[in-house]
Write a protein that binds this DNA or RNA. Sequence first.
DNA 1: TGCCTTTAAAATGTCAGACATTTAAATGTA
DNA 2: TACATTTAAATGTCTGACATTTTAAAGGCA
Lengths: 243, 243
Amino acid sequence: MKTDPKSKADLSAQIAKAIRDAIIEGRMIVDERLPSEAELSEQFNVSRPTVREALKRLAAQSLIRTQRGAFGGAFVNRLSYEEAYGQHITTSTLLLSMNGVNFDVACEARYALERACTPMAAARRDPDHLATMRAEIHRQAQPGLSDEGFCASDVTFHRALVDAAGNPVLSYQLAGAVEAMQPLMNMITFTARSRGEIVTLHTRIADAIEARDADAAEIALRELETYTLHLGRDVMAARAQNS
Amino acid sequence: MKTDPKSKADLSAQIAKAIRDAIIEGRMIVDERLPSEAELSEQFNVSRPTVREALKRLAAQSLIRTQRGAFGGAFVNRLSYEEAYGQHITTSTLLLSMNGVNFDVACEARYALERACTPMAAARRDPDHLATMRAEIHRQAQPGLSDEGFCASDVTFHRALVDAAGNPVLSYQLAGAVEAMQPLMNMITFTARSRGEIVTLHTRIADAIEARDADAAEIALRELETYTLHLGRDVMAARAQNS
DNA sequence: TGCCTTTAAAATGTCAGACATTTAAATGTA
DNA sequence: TACATTTAAATGTCTGACATTTTAAAGGCA
């Protein structure tokens, strides 16, 4: 496990990279124990705090987990879907918000990806996913629901649609696209009329998925994209006028 | 910026979470300077090494960058597409390799997402993307190319296809799906015959994109998926027999 | 002997203080 | 004014110590 002194990075970053590479390249396998902090500081010829900083970097990426006590230490962590979701969503959300990504662009990406799932979702949907979709549609029709609640329910609905495709890799990849849109969607004030429109489209999507009619689902999804785009543009226009 | 003492996490993890939340929720904006390590250790009532561990966690996620010297410190980092790509690819690759994801499942996800890009790619492709695709096809036809080189070129080709859609959010989301497949693809030994088949299909895709014929591109892409699936299954079958 | 309790050891978690290094602003000088 | 020097503020690193957690082994008791 060698570090590259040429790079001008911090020692802790170099050490983290060396260990990370070992994990990525399979030289360290899942659940394998890393040397103790004291041993690592000897191996890399640095102090223990420096080693610890390196380990914290890896822990932040869920590449390792640590356990205290005798026979504890740092272990290569099996990256779970849940952890990966979290990482992906955080990164996606910040990427969009920090770079002032256009609502249209984000919207286009999200719906394009989502449409890619519909054929599989229509073919493989099981009662659980349908039940979730129906439940969320019902919630979205409640008059007392806040805008944030409406958006959150929208995300749950669409994630159920994606999950219905029965491909966990696809679900993981789309989690970022769907969830990262939420802050942008939260800027929209949903009137009773727009909620009604969305609920209608959601119902059409759920019906199409239940009927295993991929084409109908895709068409409804495309209409939903168009409608969402309009709502977003209205908000942007109103905002531009106020400033 | 409050920490939650109820959670049993490490202090450095709690502090990292508090700062991370402040960034995500927009309470700290891009390029804003964090308090110095000494000030943070006072604020959170912990020692400086603990604060540093927290900052390293955030740095590992590219949420902050640090600068030494007077008027240096830690700054909220504008997450660039490049950094986000790196994060996403690392996570995706490990997710697939550590969970022994089925070749078929990964393949299905990848091509489903890629097909979602083709209509936009056909509509918006510019000469640069086409040139990259042609160049990679040419490289793939070189007899001396190693299997790894062939795979790497394959990734470049497909990324050019995705980038041709002209939606950076889409490119970002797909980077994970395309790149994470590479280790799985690397297990395949590409014979002269299979390379020829792939080059033919790549050429059909490039031709279709150039002709702005989305349907033809999608059909060729679907054939490529089927063919890749066959190659993968052959490898798996051979591997099963050897064990 | 067998079970329970205690103890010891090993590891991470945290703290305190010191020094090294880097960087840019402030200062001094030709 | 332009350039070189100084200085201060910050991160980077090291040393050593102590606290806490956890498990395995040792020891005591019925």
